[in-house]
Design a protein around this nucleic acid. Structure first.
Lengths: 186, 186
DNA sequence: AACTTTACAGACAGGTCTGTCTGTTTATCT
DNA sequence: AGATAAACAGACAGACCTGTCTGTAAAGTT
């Protein structure tokens, strides 16, 4: 018999599908079919598709938060950690037939009504921004300058992610990486 | 009697709706209703919704291309033109209850099958990139460095656009503007 | 005045979607 | 063994979607 953790199977399956094709392009029916669960089971765990989406975003967010705090606590200069973060982005893109930032993509199809989703996107982005600011504060003595430089790196990172998808190319990541590292050189 | 330019009315109406709510969230029925045309008239001018989308993207692209070439031919230093471009982005966002770059948003909901749409997004982005490269070539003597700096500004610009939407804030635009201008200072 | 083009109105087919509902089966715990 | 919780299967409602079709009305041209 199949393991009875329908909830997790649904979340995992939906995550893959959402990631590959986008939230709005994947229906409940496909999710439960691929997850091997019944529709009633789905609605026993998630009151709506939207709540499933929130659970998905939250799961991804938790994973990425862990990665960032581990990176912060790892060894090396701030510049080295920055470089490693961009390298991680590159492998991520290469290994996942990248379709762009799942958060931004989901935001592009969510209207103002989806407060929960919109708020999760905002807080995820804000948390990445904070990560870069912390990294910058380890390099720049002036807190004001550190905040500004962290924000710049954040914008570079976001642009790289988006344009890597739009142009289906890796150069935006490399360009952003160089630009970010140069900011951390003086 | 209503003016018989149904084609343009459709394009204009669809443009506004697509811009405000996203391509996939707006249906043909709503477009023709708001445009005041019959469904048959729609399909007389556009073979499909997808082709309407392409016409919309193309119309926006043409307008933005005009703006960029006028800016290039205008007076001032490259850095001043760069500043003006970011200022234009800021007013654009303020005046249009910004929902993010329409190209990126449309790309986020188009799969590989929509070659025409994907290709238009790619070429639009590539054309903005080229604009920044030209601008940089007016500032940096070395062509290689000019290309690299143009690309960096492009990534900054793209990140600013995306995050202004995700965070519903203007600071990414200001940050990108400062960072870009600083690149053009030495 | 006849003809052609364009737009109009709106029914219809065939499909998709979310979410509800009824009822059955399996597993676990007491 | 009996009770409870969870998962199963799948029909159904009601709404939406794109695209096709039939037929009519208005405008401009020859």
């Amino acid at each position: 018999m199949r393991k009875p953790n329908a909830r997790e199977r649904i979340l995992e399956t939906a995550g893959e599908l959402f990631f590959q094709r986008g939230y709005s392009e994947v229906g409940i029916n496909e999710i439960i079919e691929k997850a091997g669960t019944a529709k009633a089971s789905f609605y026993q765990h998630y009151p709506s598709k939207e709540s499933l989406c929130e659970a998905w975003l939250k799961a991804m967010h938790d994973r990425s938060e862990t990665f960032r705090s581990e990176l912060l606590e790892s060894q090396g200069t701030p510049a080295e950690k920055l470089a490693r973060y961009f390298d991680a982005l590159e492998s991520y893109i290469e290994n996942n037939q990248f379709r762009g930032c799942p958060y931004s993509n989901t935001g592009a199809v969510s209207d103002e009504q989806c407060c929960g989703i919109i708020e999760q996107i905002r807080s995820h982005k804000e948390s990445i921004r904070q990560f870069f600011r912390v990294l910058a504060s380890l390099h720049f003595p002036s807190p004001k300058r550190a905040a500004e430089m962290g924000d710049r790196v954040f914008v570079l990172y976001s642009g790289a992610t988006g344009e890597a998808q739009n142009l289906k190319a890796m150069w935006p990541v490399h360009t952003a990486r160089s630009a970010a590292l140069e900011l951390f050189q003086n």
